[in-house]
Amino acid sequence: MKKETITAIFFGLLFGGIMAVFISLKSKDIELSKNKVIAPPKEKSSTNLNGLEMQPLEISEPANNAIFEKDIIRFKGTAAKDSLIVIQSPIKDLVVKNTQGKFDLEFPLALGENSIKIVIYPKEKQFRPQEKYMKVYYIDSEL
């Protein structure tokens, strides 16, 4: 094989490789920029016939299916001001008025699974109650 042919093959491979790497990186960037985050739509606040809006029930703590090593947890979240909060589990009924809008309530857990239902009865009677259901687990660390 001639020296010129070998040089041509060498440079051909070199430039081809550089181009392939460049194109691959560029197409990845374009693909990433085209991707959009898929997130659940934000919960809409309910509106009554008079156009009044009600703050939706949101629970920041605890998370559904969470595991705890202590038998007391705190329910934290937000709900409509002056609504009635009812939190029920097989071992506890908690009924409080949500005077602030935000709530932070202590709640006991039984060993193992705790099925808990949270219901908010709004002060404005034309609104429907809001509900959330969750399971949390208390697994003693000594087990």
Partner: peptide, 14 residues
């Protein structure tokens, strides 16, 4: 399983 607890199943609703 680290721990298996045999318990009763409760349904809580309203």
């Amino acid at each position: 399983a680290n721990v298996v607890l045999i318990d009763e199943n409760f349904l809580v609703d309203s």
